[in-house]
Nucleic acid binder design. Structure first.
Lengths: 207, 207, 207, 207
DNA sequence: CATGAATGAGGCTTCATTCAT
DNA sequence: GATGAATGAAGCCTCATTCAT
């Protein structure tokens, strides 16, 4: 009985989270009422409240759910012995996010979560953690690149990571607001061109 | 009287918009009630409604306001004859956004606006336009870089622009969610290191 | 100067009342805001308030305005020596109300006023007075008809008046809700047929 | 459970409608706030909104409710084989409306509904339908009277119906605005006197 | 476990009215 | 006399949440 119950509970949780994610992707957090989620999930208010104590907790659970997905993705990308070229790494990451996580609506939810994270501690922890993990991962990548001599030996891996971490959110934003011109291949090509840039010496920054 | 009145109206508009921006930066769009804005602006409901017909219109006006600011910034950056190095351009842009627009709270509002733009047509136009302008500007920059031989002659300027356009939003996000480690100088340094990356040939992408 | 001023005041009053009547006929009392009337009249809030101390007073003034119109109409109808046939009297009354007062929108305002009269003392006085006058007039008509032998000598003129008083409001209602089938000629014909009705003796009412 | 629930829902609907009708009769549609209805019904805002989606819908439901009542009344009046005298028919109708429907407040609501019907499509349909039904019924009555030789063979039943349809609304109005002098018996007497009127020939209408 | 009716605080907005200019 | 910006109470309605069944 405990096993059955536990399975049942888990199935219910998923059922609710899927419904919520779908609503959130379609209408946004704030325009989605719990009534919408009740309807979408086919469950009653009481049932949903048995599994999640508030709307915030529901949002938090959805936000939290992408952490393992992203973690798995990151691990997978670096699974190989040798580090692929940087544009390839970014492309794989983008591909994972857009092609694999995208269809479930997570990508559409991302900007909602970023916005909410600024004022909601729970979401802040979830999203900040996710972004922090990604940046840490890029820092490790930068270190390896530096150690392999593919980045200047005196470079700051964290600084490099900050730039690289920017790309995926920026790409998501462009896809959602400007359309799907901003795709994985284009990003790779753009990055590839950039990495070959002729960095001419400058004698003094204007800043 | 007409002139005075017009000035007065304009002052009121600003007064309301400043109050709203301040509230939105502090609490976010959705947690800010109109009552908050009435209080912050020192005006009554009716007075605010004389200038803006709804909360949405107020948000839209604030979103629309950053377009000229950003346009001016972009124009200013490229004022000089010769194109500065790319990391310098990015740094100037980031500096303008963070140091000049930041204090008024616009930067904190940005993610709210990105999120809202996905479901609110008016905001979509405003924010999409802004982001589109920026990308177009980067496209022009990329063309010049290519023409000056600082990017590969066969590169796609738009692809480059997509990557470069990503950086500022990604940076904003990191600042807001992970803290001010992600600053202008670090970004410049990271980008500088990247642009010198040793792009080793790869015999086949995994994608 | 006093003369000029008085004329001016009177012109303003009319200007406001006409605008108000027009709005009320178009949208109803409650859906018409004072702002609507300011716009329609081309005057400012302050100007209107100089002439009428409240929306209610404005409505009251409009209601009061029809009293002399109706009084004149009634007097005119009975101007002749001999009383016309009853269906003719009703037809003239209906004609006066619908054709002469109708175009200004008064007829469309009537049901609004009836409704308001039930809860607003000022309007109650105005509309009740009007309806009472009409009924009193019909009572006089019934008395004359009885005295001329065209109604049974033992009939109650007031009872007759109550029935006759009903016809015009009922006609207005039908015109407004069911359309203009209910016109003056049809009413006259219907009444004419009824007045010739074969009143067969009944031995006991079911009431 | 289903049966119980359905009954429960129906009871709630009635509870709300009764409360609303009572408020509306007391204060009129516009002076009655939803808060008044919540208080009168003993329910909360949310509860009322579960059953009626807006104040308009509530008003519409009340308006719609009188249609079957009136229909039943009309059917009942003509239940017998032979047509009673016309004044008797009118008296029965008036009696039904005033004595049976009156106490619930419907009669006091009628003028409100007439006024609203002019600008509110839903109410227009409800009230227009009601009035149209009544007029149609009177048309049938007039046809029978004509066929029985109690109205001129060449008369227009619809014209007769228009006059007869006027009486009840006109009576309601007089009761509400001038007091209860205008009662069923007086109306019957007045009509009785009228139907015996000496319709003297006229050589030309003044219209 | 599940249901769904009920709660009620609080949000956005309107509009009659006032008053400094 | 006239203007029209400003006021602020009050209205309608939504929705996260609770709880009796």
């Amino acid at each position: 009985m405990p096993r059955v119950t536990e399975e049942h509970r888990e199935r219910r949780r998923r059922q609710i989270l899927d419904a919520a994610r779908s609503c959130f992707a379609r209408k946004g957090f704030h325009e989605t009422s719990l009534q919408d989620i009740f309807k979408e999930s086919g469950l009653s208010a009481g049932a949903v409240y048995r599994y999640f104590r508030s709307k915030d907790e529901l949002i938090g659970a959805i936000a939290a759910r992408s952490q393992p997905l992203v973690a798995a993705l990151l691990e997978e990308i670096l699974g190989e012995e040798e580090l692929p070229p940087l544009d390839e790494i970014v492309a794989r990451f983008a591909h994972g996010v857009i092609e694999r996580m995208g269809p479930s609506g997570v990508v559409r939810i991302a900007p909602q979560a970023w916005a909410l994270a600024m004022y909601n501690p729970t979401i802040h922890v979830a999203i900040g953690g996710l972004l922090g993990d990604v940046r840490l991962w890029w820092t490790r990548v930068a270190e390896r690149l530096r150690d392999e001599g593919r980045l200047p030996p005196d470079c700051d891996p964290k600084a490099v990571a900050i730039v690289l971490t920017s790309i995926i959110p920026g790409l998501i934003l462009q896809r959602l607001l400007l359309g799907e011109d901003a795709d994985v291949e284009t990003t790779r090509a753009g990055l590839h061109a950039l990495l070959a840039v002729d960095q001419r010496p400058v004698e003094g920054s204007a800043l």
